[in-house]
Design a protein around this nucleic acid. Structure first.
Lengths: 115, 115
DNA sequence: TCAGTATATAATTAAATGCTTATATAAGTC
DNA sequence: GACTTATATAAGCATTTAATTATATACTGA
């Protein structure tokens, strides 16, 4: 069902953000599970600053939110976003990220010591 | 309802095409009515080659199709596209283009003589 | 306070993007 | 065939984008 119509320029701006494979994958992952940066790093073969910069763009657009917990910063989707349902609609066309999440959980980078 | 999952890189490529305000508007217009290039030109304050170049990208991606009729080339959405339902989902969040279509019909550039 | 880990920011660069102008192609009219 | 209209293509250019490397900041724990 269509939502409230948004300005077309604003929609294009959001879609442009989604139109990058790294960002789209980040969003698809965050749609299944919040993650910190070092967890997302496990998924991509790119540098940490590159991921941080993508996250910043998504945050600036209000699509995601961050929450610091100790030394980690956890990112999650921001359901209050005006574009949340557009995002959900798009993500429903994207494959689930179980594989990538398995990769994250296997590496388990956010916990260094199991003592 | 989610469709068959598509490759995430392919989805990003399509979304990148949608992430331009001119192209997104073109698609929203074509979703309501087929148009030739000179009709689309009425809507945007940009050059004819710019519009043709956007149309070519959309055609290369299989999102639209062209049909020549005399000196005019009419463009329309391509429902057979693998991405048609993603496109429809996105367009449902975009305002209707009645205003732009009125502009086209008022100018009526594809017919020069009413005799 | 120092060392280590997590993350962000800044500066630089290469590549991609979208526009413009100029020109080519195609069809229609006389 | 010459002229006009519609559209496409090519070349050039300015801007944007996404990456990299280097560095700064924030937190943790000894």
């Amino acid at each position: 069902m269509p939502q409230l119509a948004m300005e077309i320029g604003a929609a294009a701006r959001v879609l442009k953000l989604l139109g990058d494979p790294t960002r789209l994958t980040i969003l698809a992952i965050l749609n299944q599970r919040e993650c910190c940066v070092c967890e997302l790093l496990e998924v991509f073969s790119t540098s940490q600053p590159a991921i941080s910069q993508h996250l910043r763009k998504l945050k600036d657009a209000g699509l995601i939110q961050e929450e610091r917990r100790g030394q980690w910063v956890y990112y999650s989707l921001r359901p209050q976003s005006e574009y949340y349902s557009l995002l959900q609609a798009v993500l429903s066309y994207v494959p689930d990220q179980d594989e990538n999440i398995r990769k994250i959980e296997k590496a388990n980078p956010a916990v260094r010591c199991g003592c």
